[in-house]
Design a protein around this nucleic acid. Structure first.
Lengths: 201, 201
DNA sequence: TACGCTTCTTGAGCACTGCTCAACAGCCGG
DNA sequence: CCGGCTGTTGAGCAGTGCTCAAGAAGCGTA
C-alpha cells in the first residue's frame, strides 16, 4: 500500500505534517493517530521514528523555531543597531502573520512540558544574543542580562497583544519597542543605551 | 463507604485536592482518576460536579489565581505609588516561593488551552489595573496600556528567571523592576513617570 | 535467478484516559 | 411509611500513547 520511503524522507514528511498541523491547533492537541493517518502509515511506524510523543513534538517544535530564527535573521553586513532594528521588525512581522501558531508553539503545553520550555528558551537566547551582539561585550552583566531578557518578554507579549487589533501603526510599535530597550538600558548604563541610538542615526 | 457530602463541600474538597496537586506538577498532567482516588470517590462522581476535565481545571486555576491576587493585594490606605511598590514586592515574593506552581499555573498548557490563557489574562488585567490606578486615568491611552502590559510581562519573566539563581539581592531586583516601569513610561509621557517617582519619595 | 540481510512497515493488543449512563442509596418533607 | 430529590456508584465505550512479534520491500552478492 504505502510507499516505502527512506528514513530521512519519512522523518521529513512527518515533521512537515506536524508543522502544517501546528498552524491549525496547539501541538499537544495533535494526536499521533492523526499524524499517522495523514501520512498514510500505521501508528506503529510513527513510533519507529519517534519513540515517544515527546520526541515527535520536540522535532516539530525545533523545526518551527529554526524557521522563525531564519526568517528574522539580521543582515550581517549592516551596523549592529540597524541589525537589531531589522531583526525586531522581522520578528513583529512574523508574529503578525502567525500569531496563533506562535502562541501554540511557545506557550502551548509549556510550563509542564519542559521540552517546550527548552525550545522557547533557546529561541529567546538566540534573540537576546543578537541584542548583546549589538551592544558589545560590556553588556554582559547580570543586571543588563536580566533587562535584555525582560525586554524580550515585553517584545513578545506586546507584539502578540498588538497583533490582535493593531491599536497603533506598525512603525510606531517598532519605535515603541526600540525605545523601550534604550529606556530600559539607560536605567542600568546610559552609555550602552546611547550607543544604540547613536549608531542607529 | 464514602461520606455523603453536600455539593458545596464536595466541590471545595475536589478543588482543594487540585490546588494541592498543582504544587507538585502541571495541571494537565493531573488525571481525574487520580483526583477521584485521592478524594475517595468514583470517577463518575467527579463528572457529576465538573462535566468536563476542562471545567475542573478552570475551577482549580481560578482558585489559584484568586489566592495569588489576594496575597499581593495592596494596602488601600497607602499612597498609589507605595501600593504599587508593595504589590510588586509581594508578587516577587510569591514567585520566589512558588516558582514551579506559578509556571505550571500560568504557562502550563497555555496557548493551546484557551481557559488557561483566560485565567492568565484576567490576572494580568488585575495587575495592570493596579498600575493604572496608581498612574491615574490619563494613563489610559493605547501606547501606555501596551507599555504597562509589556512591563508586566517583563516583571513576570524577569522575576521567574531571577528566582532560579537570584543573581542580585532582592531589593535590587525590585528597584530594577520599578525603575523599568518609570523608564518605560517616560518614553511615552514624562509626566506620568515623574508622578510615580515623586509620589514615592 | 536465488539467496540473505537490512530496514521499512504492519496490526494486534495493553494500559490508561476522558466521558456516558442507567441504576442504587441516603436523606428529606409529607 | 413513602415518594422524590440528589449524591453516588460501576460498568462500559472510544480514543490515546506505546510495545512487539512478524511480514515485506529493496539491495548486494553469488
Amino acid at each position: 500500500m504505502t510507499q516505502r520511503l527512506s528514513a530521512d524522507d519519512r522523518r521529513r514528511q512527518l515533521i512537515g505534517i506536524g508543522l502544517q498541523k501546528l498552524v491549525e491547533r496547539p501541538i499537544h492537541e495533535l494526536s499521533l493517530d492523526e499524524v499517522a493517518t495523514e501520512a498514510g502509515i500505521s501508528r506503529g511506524l510513527l513510533f519507529h521514528y519517534f519513540p515517544t510523543k515527546k520526541d515527535f513534538y520536540v522535532a516539530v517544535l525545533e523545526a518551527a523555531a529554526r524557521r522563525l530564527l531564519k526568517q528574522t535573521a539580521p543582515d550581517p553586513e549592516a551596523a549592529p543597531a540597524a541589525q537589531l532594528h531589522q531583526s525586531l521588525d522581522a520578528f513583529v512581522a512574523f508574529l503578525e502573520r502567525r500569531r496563533e501558531p506562535y502562541l501554540a508553539l511557545m506557550r502551548g503545553t509549556a510550563g509542564g512540558a519542559d521540552y517546550v520550555i527548552q525550545v522557547h528558551e533557546d529561541t529567546r537566547a538566540a534573540f537576546t544574543g543578537r541584542v548583546h551582539d549589538a551592544l558589545g561585550p560590556e553588556s554582559e552583566t547580570p543586571r543588563v542580562r536580566l533587562l535584555v531578557r525582560g525586554w524580550f518578554s515585553l517584545v513578545e507579549d506586546t507584539a502578540l497583544e498588538w497583533a490582535r487589533d493593531r491599536p497603533l501603526p506598525r512603525e510606531e510599535l517598532i519605535e515603541l519597542l526600540m525605545g523601550s530597550l534604550t529606556a530600559l538600558l539607560s536605567t542600568a548604563d546610559p552609555d550602552l543605551a546611547g550607543r544604540l541610538e547613536a549608531e542607529e542615526a
